[in-house]
Design a protein around this nucleic acid. Structure first.
Lengths: 186, 186, 186, 186
DNA sequence: GATGAATGAGGTTTCATTCAT
DNA sequence: CATGAATGAAACCTCATTCAT
């Protein structure tokens, strides 16, 4: 069963996006050339333009897909049936992995991708904050977080975690959790 | 007598660097054109090349100077004669201002600036961690931080704060501090 | 089927090289602009860079190909089945045509083309001298050149001929030959 | 006794011209930058423009002065009281020294220097031919050159000598003379 | 659908020249 | 007279995009 007529290959699309992120990580934004994307994705240069309108569109799709994938993972973690701190730890692990994936380039790439990035970035961040707020509320319900804390503000606090250029994550994730555990305890 | 002979103008140099950061913030990396830098700095295009070898060198100088300036501010804050949490709040304010200044572009610009950015970035981060460790130790000495916390690990925790794309800083800085205060209390 | 896939057009390559030499002759080295080469070769500016790494590489290829083409012609002339002086005259005609082609720019262009031109120029000249030496030896075998003359030294003498900025070749080629004929006669 | 007012220093002028030729020999035409000329001549960049209208004018003066100096030397040699072949040898030595001085760049530099170089080059060459013709005639008068040879054509022949990229002059000057001696002998 | 040779707008950089000191 | 910081025209070159095959 091959692809239906008129349909572009999902594999090629994925290969192109993966090649793009790989190059971004290795060479940075100025190292991202369409020719190099084509070579790594093992497609012709023109093929990229069958899947994406232009370079900006390619970046936009990359940023959006990865970001939403991250948010879906966060959502899944947040809604797990597990104690608050187990979910918080899982969340931070996802977050750190995501930061490592982008190596600090996320915001810069988003800027390249959007005409006016501000509202778009804000919207994304609101969604993330919504998820974290949900987490904090359920933490309060199960008694792990003291009721007096503003769920939204605490969501902001958690959102602000994870900014680290070089990652010895394991080295301090445990400490981060310990501080948070005491910090939000009733 | 304004400047010694043979010396290029400090003012022009500063104007060029400031124009560069301004453009980066407004237009992102791909919006940074030497011509635009010249226009905003109110110098000729060629003048930039009297002060910087090339575009990479301009970015390198920008990143280094701003980063060290930030670290000097952090150092000053850390060594103030003031209670631990006052210093921590001042530090977080500096940190958030610095992040706002760069709008998430710092790492991306550093990548453009350096041939192999990894060791350089690591070195800078170590220095930052040293300063934060010093802060935590003095917090332990004055009894604001419980002695059982590893100063280095706690420095990592503080270093990891502040990653936020859009900043309603005032809105949550207080909460961040509250969580930390309880989190590190004896 | 005109050209194999993956191969750039031989015609375009040739057109670019010919445009280059034409411009050099008309405008000199400082008149050689890549844009002008593109216009005369009737290709896009960027196309030149598909065929040559940069301007230096273009000049290098031009100098090398023309020089070797000249040497091949010399070789052919030298090995003709013809009396010594017939071959000498043919050789001098080739030589003068070559000098006219370059209008005195050959050495200057070679300098622009090579990082360190000296060994390369020397090597080329040795090859030329070898060919001329072969000619002189065969001249001695057929009795047209007196045996006492050193073939190598006489090759040098012939090599040193033809340096003239403005050429009324026909006007003096005959005299040049006459002098040489008597000069090398047994 | 210093320079009179309104007079520019002869030394600086000379230093600038010498620096120019030195750079040309070492770096070729594209290596000739006004800044480098100033550095080698140990004057300010602006100073060059007190002595020469622009770069073209500098090159024009260089080419003209050196060429006329060469012709003066040739004239002196030609008019010496000495046998024909002694004068011819001296002439060839001057000629080869001159070619070595320019390393094949003479024609290229002349092209850069003049708007329309052709008439100027032709005029110079005519003068050179006149001198050589004078030499040949006197050679005929003293019986060293056979009377049947056209003095002008023989001048052309001598003018066409000396074109050699790499100079093992001593190695073949003697042979060149020997060939010429027999070639023009009565 | 897929390709990559061809293109040229637009970027970076150089360097001859000027002019205030 | 002498200087060299400043300039911007103009050069080289890149690379996103197109389109004939």
């Amino acid at each position: 069963m091959v692809s239906p007529p008129g349909a572009l290959s999902k594999d090629k699309r994925r290969a192109i996006l993966e090649a793009t992120l790989e190059i971004l990580r290795e060479m940075g934004l100025s190292g991202l050339k369409m020719e190099e994307v084509a070579r790594r994705a093992e497609v012709g240069k023109g093929t990229i333009y069958l899947y994406f309108r232009d370079k900006k569109d390619l970046l936009k799709n990359l940023v959006e897909e990865r970001t939403w994938a991250f948010y879906r993972e966060v959502e899944e973690v947040v809604r797990q049936k597990a104690p608050f701190f187990v979910r918080l730890e899982a969340l931070l692990q996802k977050r750190l992995a995501w930061i490592a994936e982008w190596r600090g380039l996320w915001a810069a790439v988003a800027r390249e991708a959007m005409e006016d990035p501000t509202p778009w970035l804000k919207g994304l961040h609101q969604h993330y904050l919504d998820l974290l707020e949900e987490l904090v509320r359920s933490g309060q319900e199960e008694g792990a977080v003291r009721p007096g804390l503003s769920p939204r503000a605490t969501a902001h606090v958690i959102a602000a975690l994870g900014c680290t250029p070089q990652l010895e994550v394991e080295a301090y994730l445990e400490h981060l959790l310990e501080v948070l555990r005491k910090g939000v305890a009733p």
